[in-house]
Design a protein around this nucleic acid. Structure first.
Lengths: 247, 247
DNA sequence: CGAATCTTTGAATCCTCTCAAGTCTTGTGG
DNA sequence: CCACAAGACTTGAGAGGATTCAAAGATTCG
């Protein structure tokens, strides 16, 4: 309904320098886990580190896919714009995962979706030529690439099966549990939730319906306010929401 | 709710002989479009042609992924089983497309979903070693593989964006238009629709709701019965359903 | 032919949407 | 630094959809 002006420019990110793969804390979990850093030093030097503020766009659907992004910290959404102008989130990209894999297909490829940061997000920008270069000189790297693509398919399926199936209460609880999972990994006691609009685009309902469910969760003390958009959570309670009604 | 006994065995398909890639009418549209048939003759000889009757299972979620399937004729669904025993279709696999791509990851991989024929379906069964063999001796084949994986992601996104978004009327109309598209390609005047259960697993609603919408379409002459599960269609009318309410 | 399965339809209930107003936040300029 | 405007979130009420439970037609298959 609110016809969004979707072809706005991408926000300029903050450049944080060249990537330092050798000392990267998440490298062993990502696509470069098995590559020989010294052998490909020249190529890996072309990777830059950027910081995208919450709500800023990394790339826009239909623009030339000149490279892909590895999320080091934060959270991205990939959203498709529908014919009527509304958006639907088709995948979330978490730490260690990739956005814009379609850039690997060939040089003329365009991005399939628009990528937007849901939190302040740190990414490595990997030009097409880097992956392609490693691939040609190191055929075994192929397996790593496929593993990442497989992860993309799993992320898509998760949106469908977990966030778009069941009652709205269940879907919202599953989204929150995903955020809680991330927080637990980082030993944080609270989660930073996305706006109702994003919640809606992920679960396939209206903003108002999401707001009602989240209000209900707050009333039931499943969520407790702890700053702007920050909440303490009752993990067991949310888990029981997911399990209820499913028998 | 109806807890399906999901680990039933796969149906035995009808073996139709060795694949004859050289004379295959759809090869130029699939993963082998660019391979040198003579160079890889020994490997390609390991591909068998099978015919799976409607409703039969090609493979089951969690079983060892020893190879993948190319659809030559017909239609497959890939469905994930949810915690409560219900199924949700995460992808449809059409002519020229692949099922079971996860088998390429490594030898111990298991299938992520269960593959079932929605129509009588002819497939080529391609063992893991065939793709892997071509990949090692022919690095350029890599691009073809990625193209197929990209197609898988698109198919997943289509289920989410087209079949699980909008009013139920719109979703059902979009499923029908997809079937019509297939029929038009083959110059057929009618479509063979899937059962209400599958329609429901694809659109994320109940069987009854689907039945009501399809009955409405029949009353409005958007569909006209033409045999068992076969219907003549009013393409323009269905298209206007998709466009309605979306402004 | 008859049993099992699938589909259709009805009626009541529950859920989500829409429209609308009111509240809270955020960001900007004086 | 405050005030104001724009945007985001909450809440209510009524309408429209989808679900559930139930029962009656169709189909399919042995």
């Amino acid at each position: 309904m609110t016809k969004a002006p979707n072809h706005t420019k991408c926000t300029n990110p903050k450049w944080e320098g060249r990537a330092d793969c050798e000392h990267c804390p998440i490298r062993k979990f990502d696509i470069f886990a098995d590559v020989d850093l010294h052998k490909h030093e020249a190529l890996l030097n072309r990777i830059d580190l950027y910081n995208y503020a919450k709500k800023s766009k990394l790339y826009v659907e239909g623009s030339p896919a000149i490279g892909m992004y590895i999320v080091r910290k934060g959270l991205l959404k990939l959203e498709a714009t529908l014919d009527d102008g509304t958006a639907r989130i088709v995948r979330l990209v978490r730490k260690g995962e990739l956005a814009g894999v379609e850039s690997l297909l060939n040089n003329g490829q365009c991005f399939d979706q628009t990528a937007i940061a849901l939190k302040d997000t740190e990414v490595c920008r990997v030009p097409y030529e880097v992956i392609n270069g490693i691939l040609t000189s190191d055929p075994g790297f192929n397996k790593s690439v496929l593993k990442e693509w497989h992860q993309q398919i799993e992320a898509s399926d998760r949106v469908l099966v977990e966030y778009s199936t069941g009652t709205l209460r269940q879907r919202c609880a599953r989204v929150l549990l995903m955020l809680i999972d991330e927080a637990n990994y980082e030993a944080k006691t609270g989660i930073e939730i996305m706006g109702t609009e994003d919640f809606a685009a992920l679960t396939g309902v209206t903003r108002e319906s999401v707001s009602r469910v989240l209000s209900e969760f707050k009333r039931k003390k499943l969520l407790t306010k702890d700053g702007q958009n920050k909440f303490l959570f009752n993990e067991a309670g949310l888990r029981s929401i997911v399990e209820s009604n499913s028998e």
